[in-house]
């Protein structure tokens, strides 16, 4: 791990949603920097914008103001197609709702993620996906559809999918929220281990004190307030 390498940098980032009557600030970050290989816990109360921030970092959302740089490149300046390719290759994302494709098996869910990134040679993709599912203890569930798996097993598939393309940035949104303690720790250990071995940056959002205590760096988000159009909110990362 090269601790001096600046991988991700957020400056004056705001995400606002507007309707007829008001502007709702979903998240506001003055400055945040992450280095390559760093493991960070993102904490904050419900509604503080953790998920929105992860969506912004992954390029799924573009900020209303400010900029997010990945290896020095401003994400919002990239054409959308480039951002799609970048996300496929460089970002592994475990969503809060897991978001496994219900019509595909565990193995196919991994293969789909690989097909968009094309990081792993085609011939090796199936073997690599099987190997990864084996590592998370699902070697006998490759052909099972998500509804045939327990919540813990689904979470492990989602975790395997997030690391399948060996991404340089792994985002995990409350990865242990729907799991019992044992399964939660298993998934977290797996992510941390993988990130450590591959030198990936890991950002885990959580409100679980036991989880956050495992991280050396904790960033906390305050709940932003709703403001009338024209007013500003200041929501700082601690």
């Amino acid at each position: 791990m090269d601790g001096d390498e600046k991988m991700l940098e957020l400056n004056q980032v705001r995400k606002e949603y507007r309707d007829v009557l008001q502007t709702i600030t979903a998240v506001a970050v003055e400055h945040l920097m992450m280095q390559t290989g760093e493991q960070i816990a993102l904490v904050g109360p419900s509604g503080s914008g953790k998920t929105t921030l992860l969506h912004l970092i992954s390029g799924l959302l573009t900020p209303t103001a400010g900029e997010i740089k990945f290896n020095g490149i401003v994400l919002s300046s990239m054409p959308e197609t480039w951002r799609d390719t970048w996300r496929a290759k460089a970002v592994g994302y475990i969503f809060q709702k897991l978001n496994l494709l219900s019509s595909l098996t565990a193995l196919e869910n991994l293969l789909v993620a690989m097909s968009f990134a094309n990081v792993i040679p085609k011939k090796e993709q199936r073997q690599w996906a099987s190997q990864l599912l084996d590592q998370v203890g699902l070697s006998d569930k490759l052909g099972k559809f998500p509804h045939q798996l327990s919540m813990g097993e689904q979470q492990r598939v989602a975790a395997a999918r997030a690391v399948i393309n060996k991404p340089s940035l792994i985002l995990a949104d409350e990865p242990t929220a729907s799991l019992d303690q044992d399964n939660g720790l298993l998934v977290l250990d797996m992510l941390r281990q993988f990130a450590k071995e591959s030198g990936s940056t890991l950002v885990v959002s959580t409100h679980d004190r036991q989880i956050m205590n495992q991280f050396e760096r904790i960033c906390s988000l305050r709940k932003p307030s709703e403001e009338v159009i024209g007013s500003a909110t200041s929501n700082r990362l601690a």
Partner: peptide, 15 residues
């Protein structure tokens, strides 16, 4: 929703 997941996984417009 399925398409949103695909987009999140990096699917391009063409995909």
């Amino acid at each position: 929703r399925d398409r949103s997941i695909l987009r999140a996984l990096g699917a391009s417009a063409r995909d």
